[in-house]
Nucleic acid binder design. Structure first.
Length: 209
DNA sequence: ACATTAAGTGATT
DNA sequence: AATCACTTAATGT
């Protein structure tokens, strides 16, 4: 697994010295199955670097309502975790592993140091911030401007993309929760998509055609 | 065979 | 698009 980390870090374009430090200072975190990684109100002192798997990052309010924000995939850093740590705020974020995932947890207190010493690290953080921000804008206008049927289709295609599979193993209920709507609505829209022959429906499973 | 959970649907707001 | 109420289908015991 160390090799894989090395590979990823090199792929990002970090220099040798930094890679060695990262490998020395961080710790490995394996997540099996669909499991919450960071939940609201808990402060975490680490910045996760995704080695493999997909994380779904969400916003959560007091009542437990969730809003999807963006995905984090292999080779990506969760730059947002820096901002909540720097400002010493409790994370209003919740991250859930979508699949089995392997993360490299980097202690937050080293970030500053690395940013000033390694320009490649600064770039990683800034780029990652930028990328998250762009994704955020996408999901914002999908919420603001897209109708439910378009959102559903985008959701299905996103899932297809991130899992590399045409099959989505979720119930209508789960999908509805992630889109903040009701199961009935999802069932109806999926049914419509099925008639248009864009998906095939099964129990606990949707296939994108 | 029975209970439980997922999905489909008409009617109403 | 949400909610209710009900039906039907799939799955587990």
């Amino acid at each position: 697994m160390r090799d894989r980390l090395d590979e990823i870090l090199q792929g990002i374009g970090l220099e040798r010295a930094l890679i060695d430090e990262i490998k020395q200072q961080g710790r490995l975190l394996k997540i099996v199955g669909e499991q919450p990684l960071i939940s609201t109100g808990v402060k975490s002192g680490d910045m996760p670097l995704v080695i493999s798997g997909t994380l779904r990052v969400m916003r959560e309010d007091e009542m437990g309502n969730e809003v999807f924000l963006y995905y984090l995939e292999g080779g990506e850093a969760c730059a947002m975790s820096i901002s909540c740590c720097l400002s010493n705020q409790l994370s209003g974020f919740k991250a859930v592993a979508e699949t089995d995932a392997v993360l490299w947890m980097v202690p937050m207190h080293l970030i500053d140091d690395w940013m000033s010493r390694f320009q490649s690290f600064r770039k990683l953080i800034v780029d990652s911030y930028q990328a998250r921000f762009d994704e955020l804008m996408l999901t914002i206008d999908s919420i603001a401007f897209m109708k439910m049927d378009e959102r559903l289709m985008k959701y299905l295609l996103d899932k297809k993309q991130s899992s590399g599979s045409y099959e989505i193993h979720k119930s209508h209920e789960q999908i509805a929760n992630e889109l903040n709507t009701s199961r009935v609505v999802v069932s109806r829209l999926l049914k419509k998509l099925e008639r248009e022959e864009r998906v095939a429906l099964y129990r606990n499973r949707v296939e994108v055609l």
